[in-house]
């Protein structure tokens, strides 16, 4: 009897230990960033492709104010209210003291410099596919932006979602690996896939989520309820979006639909970013979208 009890205790300890190991934040190998010469111009393009300012600029920031990444925007979700943090170049209030490696761990693994897990309101499951070259370039670009000493506002999250360690499990379940759209893609479609699936994190709004907030990768870009409760975020698969590639590229620069209505809602801020990309990148996004299979 005592042996059985001892065995049970041992098993429980091992399961617990395995759990701790499995839910431990992952990190980027520092060697991958060593010797990279960051390209600031490329960093600007990564910054706009990834839409950093759309969440991290101050609420109701003006066009110029969008470059002050003071944080403070609130995102109400089923799990509680998340508040975007200050990621300006201020060394104390922002992330000015971060190394490129710190930024890589945050973007690619949702892991903070103190080892803590970030909530996936920060779309690191998409950014996970970002190249380390682009991370280093973005790091260099972020350092050129103004500092803000605005203090971070804590998230307002209820139990059990306030236990950050649990996010390790969430990441195990939902950090989808690999590209969603695969197969015989052209170079242009491959570039578009990187812009849509990684940097642009389009699926975060355009793909439905399960009860735990994980993306339903099998329903990729098929549209989803609008998290703010009004209307629906449209699907972008070839069956749902019958716009031409030129139509899509035009929408991403001017916001005009093929009927010359204009974008509204959250997409307006997305277009403020995509309008700063190159024509090639906008056309690459369009080419990729035309390859998203009918679900």
């Amino acid at each position: 009897m005592r042996r059985i009890l001892l065995f049970a205790v041992l098993v429980m300890l091992m399961v617990g230990l395995a759990g701790l190991l499995l839910t431990r934040p992952q990190r980027v190998d520092p060697a991958r960033l060593a010797g990279l010469t960051p390209d600031v111009t490329r960093g600007a393009s990564v910054f706009y492709s990834a839409g950093c300012a759309s969440c991290h600029s101050a609420p109701d920031a003006s066009e110029e104010g969008k470059l002050i990444l003071a944080g403070g925007r609130r995102f109400e979700t089923d799990f509680g209210t998340f508040v975007a943090p200050n990621i300006s170049s201020d060394p104390d209030a922002g992330i000015g003291s971060w190394s490129a490696l710190d930024l890589a761990n945050a973007l690619k693994h949702g892991k903070g410099p103190r080892g803590q897990h970030y909530y996936p309101a920060f779309p690191y499951t998409s950014y996970a596919k970002m190249t380390v070259e682009d991370v280093a370039a973005l790091h260099a670009f972020l350092n050129t932006l103004p500092a803000s000493d605005a203090a971070n506002i804590p998230h307002d999250i209820g139990f059990p979602f306030n236990i950050r360690r649990g996010l390790g499990l969430w990441k195990l379940l939902f950090s989808g690996s690999g590209w969603v759209v695969e197969g015989d893609l052209t170079d242009q479609q491959i570039r578009g896939r990187y812009l849509v699936e990684a940097l642009g994190h389009c699926a975060e709004c355009h793909t439905p989520r399960n009860g735990l907030g994980g993306l339903k990768r099998g329903l990729w870009l098929t549209g989803a309820p609008n998290p703010n409760g009004k209307g629906r975020i449209p699907g972008l698969t070839t069956a749902q979006l019958d716009w031409s590639e030129a139509d899509i590229a035009e929408y991403l620069i001017s916001g005009f639909t093929p009927d010359y209505d204009s974008a509204g809602g959250e997409m307006v801020e997305v277009i403020e970013n995509t309008s700063k990309l190159s024509d090639e990148d906008r056309l690459a996004i369009a080419a990729y979208l035309k390859s998203v299979p009918v679900q």
């Binding site: 609008n226 009004k230 001017s254 204009s262 974008a263 809602g265 277009i271 309008s275």
Partner: peptide, 19 residues
Amino acid sequence: MGQLGGACSACHKAYRAPE
């Protein structure tokens, strides 16, 4: 076109209900 579209969207974002 970009500037014109931006001006349309600025008002639609703030003052038009979603479809």
